[in-house]
């Protein structure tokens, strides 16, 4: 058999014309995904993109893989059914803050705690785009929108902390336009066996432009972001002079001078749930935003356990004709 030909990023793009708003962060994410697929040599016929409803959820139509654009919030449940039947497929779930954390919050919760082997990409733009700009469950208090003209009053949910609370074993973050950082995160998520949850900060140019500018804008990025790496000290800043220190007295993280106190800088441990909690809770401007693989622990994936725990590993070892007779029977002559 011939080795499969090496595909380039554009081989993963379908013939469909992409219809997001010009300048939408989704374009950058689509590019990062096709590049990642090319890099890892994904087989298109064994790759399935499953989405819910929303701008983000148009994603599957633009990829030359199998694609299923389902209904609002339910993509994780559909993906679970696919994985139960064929655990060998590489299944990606594309969702948004409304789709995944509002109408579909329940399914996301259960998919993460079961550890179904899917890669969940949650495009967070803190707004409902496709329905024209209403506030979303991740919108900050005071967000003015057509449905909240005086400003929204609900406390937003943190996607990362939600995932941690749900028992997710892989939690990562990236920024739409950060090609390298996002690519690394996507690659790690794809390699992880289990539910890999990736929050992608995505700029909605029409309804919520620059909502993440406080930490994504080039002018502030270096000082407002910390790129975490397992086993490495949590250092950031334009001059690599800031570090995160764990204050054992107050059980909090604080920013210290990394050059003056190098030994006091916390070393990232992606298996430690307390560190994950502290990193995910950090918010600008007081603290940098944590990016990269924040949590990763090995676990048994649900789909592999589903097959392994099944009495015949889902094989048909008896016929209905036999099974019907495993009871009292009688003959009439």
């Amino acid at each position: 058999m011939n080795a499969p030909e090496k595909l380039s990023a554009k081989d993963y793009a379908s013939s469909q014309e992409v219809r997001w708003c010009p300048g939408c962060g989704d374009y950058a994410i689509l590019k990062a995904v096709t590049q990642t697929l090319a890099k890892i040599g994904a087989r298109p016929e064994k790759t399935v993109f499953i989405s819910g409803i929303g701008c983000a959820s148009r994603f599957p139509y633009y990829l030359e893989t199998y694609g299923f654009h389902t209904i609002h919030g339910r993509a994780p449940a559909v993906a679970t059914g696919v994985k139960l039947v064929n655990p060998e497929l590489d299944v990606w779930v594309v969702t948004g803050d409304g789709d995944g954390l509002s109408i579909g919050g329940n399914h996301l919760l259960h998919t993460l705690r079961r550890n179904v082997d899917v890669n969940v990409l949650l495009f967070n733009n803190e707004i409902y785009g496709l329905t024209k700009g209403q506030f979303s469950p991740t919108s900050r208090v005071g967000t003015r929108s057509p449905s909240s003209p005086a400003g929204s009053i609900d406390e937003p949910v943190s996607a990362g902390l939600f995932a941690l609370g749900a028992g997710a074993r892989f939690i990562a973050r990236g920024i739409d336009t950060d090609k390298v950082g996002l690519g690394d995160v996507l690659e790690a998520a794809q390699a992880y066996r289990g539910a890999a949850f990736v929050e992608i900060f995505q700029n909605c140019i029409v309804y919520n432009e620059n909502v993440f500018a406080a930490f994504t804008d080039k002018s502030v990025a270096a000082d407002a972001q910390v790129r975490v790496e397992h086993g490495q000290p949590l250092i950031f800043g334009k001059d690599r002079d800031k570090g995160l220190h764990f204050n054992a007295g107050s059980l909090t993280l604080e920013v210290i001078d990394a050059k003056a106190r190098p030994d006091d800088v916390l070393v990232h441990d992606r298996t430690n749930p307390v560190i994950a909690q502290l990193l995910l809770a950090m918010q600008p401007p007081q603290m940098p935003v944590a990016l990269g693989v924040i949590r990763q622990v090995a676990g048994t994936s649900y789909d592999s356990a589903f097959v392994a725990s099944h009495v015949t590993q889902l094989a048909r070892t008896k016929s209905i004709t036999d099974v019907l007779r495993q009871t009292n029977t009688w003959r009439v002559e």
Binding site: I50, F68, T70, I71, R74, A77, V78, A79, T80, G81, V82, K83, L84, V85, N86, L89, N106, H107, H110
Partner: peptide, 13 residues
Amino acid sequence: IAAVCAAIGASYA
């Protein structure tokens, strides 16, 4: 809802 959606996913696969 998850039950029917998983069944649909199963059929799709």
